[in-house]
Amino acid sequence: MNNAETESELQKTMMGHLKADRRRKLILNLVILALLILAPAVIYATFLMKILCFALFAVAFNLLLGYTGLLSFGHAAFLAAGGYTTGYLLSSYSGLTTEMGIIAGTAAATALGALFAIVAIRRQGIYFAMITLALAQLVYFVFVQAPFTGGEDGLHGVPRGHLFGFIDLENNVAMYYFVLAVFVGGYLLVQRIVNSPYGQVLKAIKQNEPRAVSLGYNVDRYKVIAFVISAGLAGLAGSLKTVVFQLASLNDAHWHMSGEVILMTLLGGTGTLLGPVVGATFVVNLEYQLSQGPLGDWVDPILGAIFVLTVMAFRSGIVGEIQNFMRKNMS
């Protein structure tokens, strides 16, 4: 009896810890959100939007790498599919409101994601990465050749248009808050997913796939869904980016971009929600700072060195290392 009582006491304190932990995270997120809302007062809004677009891209990618354990080396294809679709539609049909263009871009990337997933999902590890890379290269050449992408030049002068038909997005402040709202929506969706019943199964698959199978889970189906959602969100990031910069270019489809999102995610911390956001912020900032100074030509080697350092010494990434540090010093 006594034993049972102490047990339930223990349970309660444990649950208490979990709740406190959750509350801390919520407060942290609210602080970050408040900073983002105030940020355009001090930082150039276009630069912030660039960060938010890449952060959303990395968050989408992390759903796959960090929470499902799948390394896609072809996520640039989805970023570009979203970007090009939105760019083409908004340029060609002036009657289209901005959000419709973005929804269409997201839908195109989602469909492309489903196609990729069906081909690649049965492969494991490096083979999965290679197939996604090969498919993304195929998509790249389609974008080079297709008549609606502008080939090497890309699509320029995409109109930002009017959100819901009446909010003029040529206004940079309006544009910023729209991007922020979409980013927050995407982030919350991923947060919801990883904490949902479905997210639990994803974690199980990541940690021990054969065991998940033996517990009756048809793991391929779970992976396909994660892949498709991730592709869709990457496409959403690409669509937003096109609207912000009024430009869809081949850079977004290049495998270099697939590598960059891996770097952002690893650097920030895979399997943490905030990690990819921090990683994207870091990388975009670094690229910008370097390009302003005398080291402009050294961006790639410096990023490469950081990549190596992260993989060798800070496996958990910035956010992961901070979490580990706090865990060690708080208990």
Partner: peptide, 18 residues
């Protein structure tokens, strides 16, 4: 819980709260 969940029929519910 992951094992029990296998029979719950909510394992694809990515929109539901944990």
């Amino acid at each position: 819980r992951v094992a029990l969940q296998s029979f719950e029929g909510n394992s694809f519910a990515f929109w539901k709260s944990g």
